[in-house]
């Protein structure tokens, strides 16, 4: 543990934190003692306790499991609780700003209700009947790919970086965003589900806006391959259904799920 030397040695964290609300604000500088192993969220908590009791921030688990503490650290969308201070240069001033795609509430807290509204629009799980013996048989290999999607902690970092809404607020009503493409893919690929959400994906969810830049995949703290494993397969299904004449004919004859 070479790092042990750092602890309690008078090392300091220099932070530049956004303070303010929708009516305006500014970055303010804070300096707090740096302890061994600290993450950005710890430093924010020290600032709260020592200098700014009203500094607004969301957090719960402190272990990358709840997806509450999303922010932009030195301009990069990150979970503050999983960003170690020792990944920065000693003495470097670290900038912490709220995520940019959603309206600011105060300091590091943004209004993420967009996501909760989108969640309400998704046609829910609709299972097929049980097996004759009353069980549900599914095999691990059939659910592996959906379990990947279920890892999503709803941190909304993918939503934050997606240019379709980050740069174009006006797209929000007609675009569900990568988090919800993952969600729809998880339902569409669920071995028991019988509903069909391709029309929904094409229309309300605005899948067509996505031009596969993969920015969402790059920031996902759960390492979900959002683009390759959910968006692209969904796009393929939409194309097959709506733009491939043979599939369309089969669809009209009653074949439903691919």
């Amino acid at each position: 543990m070479a790092e042990a030397a750092v602890a309690g040695n008078g090392a300091e964290a220099k932070m530049r934190v956004w303070r303010g609300d929708a009516s305006g604000g500014e970055f303010r500088d804070y300096t707090v003692p740096l302890e061994e192993g600290m993450v950005v969220l710890d430093v924010i908590h020290s600032i709260q306790a020592m200098h700014a009791g009203d500094l607004a921030v969301r957090w719960n688990c402190k272990a990358g499991k709840c997806g509450s503490c999303s922010a932009e650290v030195n301009g990069k969308p990150r979970l503050m609780c999983m960003t170690r201070m020792n990944t920065f240069e000693p003495g470097e001033t670290i900038t912490v700003a709220p995520i940019q795609t959603f309206p600011l509430v105060r300091d590091l807290v943004t209004d993420v209700s967009y996501n909760y509204e989108k969640a309400k629009t998704i046609p829910p799980f609709k299972p097929k009947p049980k097996e004759a013996d009353g069980t549900r048989r599914m095999y691990q290999e059939d659910i592996d790919r959906v379990q990947e999607f279920h890892k999503c902690i709803e941190c909304y970092l993918c939503q934050d970086v997606c240019h379709v809404i980050r740069d174009h607020n006006e797209n929000k009503p007609s675009f569900a965003g990568p988090r919800f493409f993952v969600r729809v893919a998880s339902l569409e690929m669920h071995p028991l589900d019988t509903d069909d959400r391709l029309e929904f994906l094409r229309n309300e969810a605005g899948l067509g806006f996505c031009n596969i830049t993969k920015c969402c995949t790059e920031v996902c703290p759960e390492h979900i391959k959002i683009t390759d494993n959910s968006i692209i397969p969904m796009k393929e299904r939409v194309v097959t259904r709506f733009y491939d004449p043979i599939a369309r004919l089969l669809g009209a004859l009653g074949g439903k799920k691919s």
Binding site: D21, Q48, A52, G53, D54, L55, A56, V57, V105, R106, D107, V109
Partner: peptide, 12 residues
Amino acid sequence: KVEGGRRFNPGW
């Protein structure tokens, strides 16, 4: 005594 206002104030 808490500093700041009523809007999202963790100290309060």
